[in-house]
Amino acid sequence: MKKMFHLLIIAIIGVLFIYGLTNIVLNFKGYTGADFLIVAIMLAFVALLELVLIKQYKRTYSLEAEEARKQREADRTKEKFDVESKILGSKSRQQLIGADLCIKAKHMAGLPIADGAEIFVYRCKDKVVFERNQDTIELDINKVRDILIKTDVEIQKSYVSSAGGAVGGYVLFGPLGAMIGGRAKEKKSTKTEKYLIFAYEKDGETDYISMEVTNEPNASLFNSNYYDLSKNERKLTSL
C-alpha cells in the first residue's frame, strides 16, 4: 500500500510537470519575461521534487527487494542445511553437532550398537559422539581416562604377557582385548588391523569403547593431546 501511494505521488507530480511544460509551449507568445521566469522556477522545483521522489523510491524499494532476495537465499540455505544435517557423517551434520572431525569406523565393543556395525565418530571439543542410524551416543570427555590407537599385534602381545589379559581383575582393553588376544594363534592374515580405543570411567570403574579403524587415517587425530586429558580429575588406584 505504501509503495502504491509513493508511485501515485510520483505520477501526479510527473503529470503536473508535463502540464506546465505543455502550457509554456502552447502559450509561448503570450508569456512575458517575468512569466517565463516564474514558470521556469516552478517547473524546476517540480522536476527536482520528482527526481528526489524517484531516487527515494529506488533506494527504499531496491533495498527491500535486496533484503527479500537475501532472505530467500537464507531460507534456501537453511532448508538445504536442515536436509543435509540429517545425513550421518556429512559436513552439515558435523556443524550441527559442533564437531571439527568425523571418521567412519567399525564398532567392536562398548556401545549399545551391534558389534561389527559401521558407525560415525565425531570429535567435539568437550565430547566424542558416536552415531549409527537413529542412535546418537555421547561420551563426556571429562570421563575419558585415555585414548589409544592399538594394532591387533600389540593387543595380542599385551594379552599374552598379562596372563590371559587379566589386569587387576579386568580384561585388558575390555571385550576387545579378549576378542583379539584370544585369537592370537588363529590369525593367518598378515594384514595389520588398527583399533581406536577410548578408556573411560563408568560407575567408578574403567570401561572401554573400541572400534576398528584400519582404513581410517584420521583416526589418529583422536588423541589425548587434542583433548588434554591431563586436566581431568586424577584417579588413585591402590594395588
Rank of each mutant, 00 (worst) to 15 (best):
A65G: 04
E66T: 13
E66D: 08
R69M: 10
K70E: 14
Q71K: 14
Q71M: 01
E73L: 10
A74G: 02
D75S: 02
D75L: 03
R76C: 03
R76S: 11
T77S: 08
T77N: 13
T77R: 10
K78V: 03
E79L: 05
E79Q: 08
E79Y: 02
K80T: 11
K80R: 09
K80W: 06
E84P: 00
E84R: 05
K86Y: 01
L88I: 14
G89A: 08
G89W: 00
K91A: 14
K91Y: 12
S92I: 01
R93K: 12
R93S: 06
Q94Y: 04
Q94A: 15
Q95S: 09
Q95F: 09
Q95A: 13
Q95N: 07
L96C: 02
I97W: 04
A99M: 08
A99H: 10
D100W: 12
L101Q: 13
C102R: 08
I103C: 11
I103Y: 03
K104G: 12
A105K: 00
A105E: 03
K106T: 07
H107S: 04
H107L: 05
M108D: 09
P112H: 06
P112I: 11
I113M: 10
I113L: 15
D115Q: 10
G116C: 13
A117H: 00
E118Q: 13
I119L: 02
F120W: 08
V121C: 11
R123L: 01
K125W: 00
D126P: 02
K127E: 15
K127T: 03
V128S: 03
V129M: 09
V129G: 09
F130D: 03
F130V: 05
F130Q: 04
R132I: 15
Q134W: 09
Q134P: 00
Q134S: 14
D135I: 13
D135E: 12
I137N: 07
E138S: 10
E138Y: 02
L139I: 13
L139W: 06
D140G: 00
D140L: 11
N142K: 09
N142I: 05
N142V: 06
R145E: 08
D146A: 12
D146I: 00
I147D: 09
I147V: 15
I147C: 09
L148S: 08
L148N: 12
I149Q: 09
I149F: 07
V153R: 10
V153H: 03
I155V: 11
I155L: 10
K157L: 13
K157G: 03
S158K: 13
Y159D: 09
Y159L: 07
Y159M: 04
V160K: 15
V160D: 14
S161V: 14
S161H: 11
A163I: 13
A163E: 15
V167E: 07
G168I: 06
Y170K: 14
Y170I: 04
Y170Q: 14
V171E: 04
L172F: 09
F173D: 04
